[in-house]
Design a protein around this nucleic acid. Structure first.
Lengths: 275, 275
DNA sequence: AAAGCTATTTCATAATATGAAAAATTCAAA
DNA sequence: TTTGAATTTTTCATATTATGAAATAGCTTT
């Protein structure tokens, strides 16, 4: 049904001036109801009306309409409204779309621009970190991880960010399998030291690879979560210790975490409820 | 946020007489757009407007409004509209209700790790199997059922596991409705053959989908029971025939059944007293 | 450079969404 | 049992606003 011969047409980014007001008010309010219904995990008509400060009559009609299309369910017994199966079905079509890597691209670009360092994206695969993509800095001296590279979890920023969010069982499993090979004098090879580092990482919200894989190279990484709050990917910046200095780490980490949060939201992910 | 002291009030099942007309027209049409967008897997403005026989101007405003709340995404590059992350997020709240999916998550993960194959969770809805979630294997070749997919009962492992636990009446009802469409040479299209297969399945405790839906793909599924001993969900592993070989089936089935039992217990379910 | 698409915006108008209040019903208390 | 309070659903008059046609502005192709 799709005709791939179509390309960009039409009107540009800004004509009038700024953001026009071409949203439909009633629809917008209706969506507000649906979102609220989801956020509060169901509720009775009056609860919802009060929460949104809208007329019960309107909310009632909105919910009835949603119900007509299966976007909302109404339990006669308890008089409680809930998100319906159709909302799940339609919403799930979101997953069929572009990959993590594609969604990450613009976010990584901005991260690179904000920090001036190469931005990386990686996931865990078979106990290793698989690099899915990167956006390189313009600086002449720069880190380079070709996409498709697989490297050890324990000596990578993204790897440690992911590890820090696994439960103890999985953690030990991965660490045992990999044997904590020593790459530089800074590599953490002692399992207990590694576990301690992971605890710090988890509490801090981001991981630091301080020359643990390559001498002279630092990396700051934060985890990206899926809808179930599981850490499924990591995003990082990496560069030479001469530019990523000790005192810049905190600042850079803010950008990295912000990018990770944005990507989490872009893939429909969920904060971080999982312990 | 919920006040459990509230109970049933208000007006009953039928007052006026039959179904009243208290749906909001514009909202209903907007939902039509969203559903179409999902069904057709994205599309350009004119494609959607034509498909729905609506004014481009209106469709544009509807989509813009959805975009404002994140229910739709617009890719400037390709001028293509798609279902957005917020639709997925809100729609996913549907799962929280049963909490089945939530409880299943860790169990599915362990099942995946034990078997090395993708683990799936599904329920029956409107005579079809609705996939609620999955945990993917790390293997590069793998089965992929996006959550939200609805597929035919008779050609799915989970579907057959559920069918095998229904009484004859419901069984024939569902099978009659679906017409046993043939997907591969292995699909069971003869009702009697299907009934026989279901008897075997019930006695055995797990269902096998041997390339009945997709050539080269096998699936092993077991039912999950609620408090009344009714089969309300199914849990399965699926993968290529090259890995899920004939002689591994018995072993894998043990893991699947164990996972199903654990999930049954996790949702307060009851062994299998029913029929 | 012009013609031909397609996406946006504007605008006048009719459609319809809306809140207030009434009606219908159930729950709890007297 | 009766009464009253709470809550959902409907009706109705009205103003809001959603809507399509047509105009506008960018692209793409000729």
């Amino acid at each position: 049904m799709k005709d791939s011969s179509k390309r960009t047409r039409g009107r540009p980014k800004a004509w009038g001036d700024k953001d026009q007001q071409n949203t439909i008010k009633s629809l917008d309010r209706a969506l507000e109801v649906l979102v609220a219904l989801g956020d509060m995990g169901g509720g009775t008509l009056s609860e919802i009306a009060v929460a949104l400060d809208q007329s019960p009559a309107t909310v009632y009609r909105v919910l009835s309409t949603f119900q007509g299309r299966g976007f909302a369910d109404f339990d006669e017994q308890s008089q409680v409204w809930n998100i319906g199966a159709a909302a799940f079905l339609t919403g799930s079509q979101f997953l069929r779309r572009t990959s993590l890597a594609e969604r990450a691209r613009p976010i990584m670009r901005e991260l690179m621009e904000a920090t001036g360092e190469t931005a990386n994206l990686g996931i865990e695969r078979d106990g290793k970190v698989l690099f899915l993509g990167q956006v390189e800095t313009n600086a002449t001296i720069r880190a380079f991880f070709p996409p498709g590279t697989a490297s050890a979890m324990h000596s990578s920023g993204i790897g440690k960010a992911l590890l820090s969010r696994m439960d103890d069982t999985r953690q030990r499993q991965v660490l045992a399998a990999g044997k904590l090979e020593q790459f530089t004098p800074h590599t953490l090879t002692d399992p207990e030291a590694m576990i301690a580092d992971l605890h710090t990482t988890k509490a801090r919200g981001y991981a630091i690879d301080g020359e643990e894989r390559n001498l002279g190279m630092r990396c700051i990484a934060a985890p990206v979560y899926n809808v179930y709050g599981e850490a499924v990917a990591g995003i990082s910046v990496s560069g030479p210790t001469t530019r990523i200095t000790e005192d810049r780490i905190t600042i850079l980490a803010q950008s990295v975490m912000e990018a990770a949060d944005r990507l989490t939201r872009a893939i429909g992910g969920n904060g971080r409820p999982a312990g």
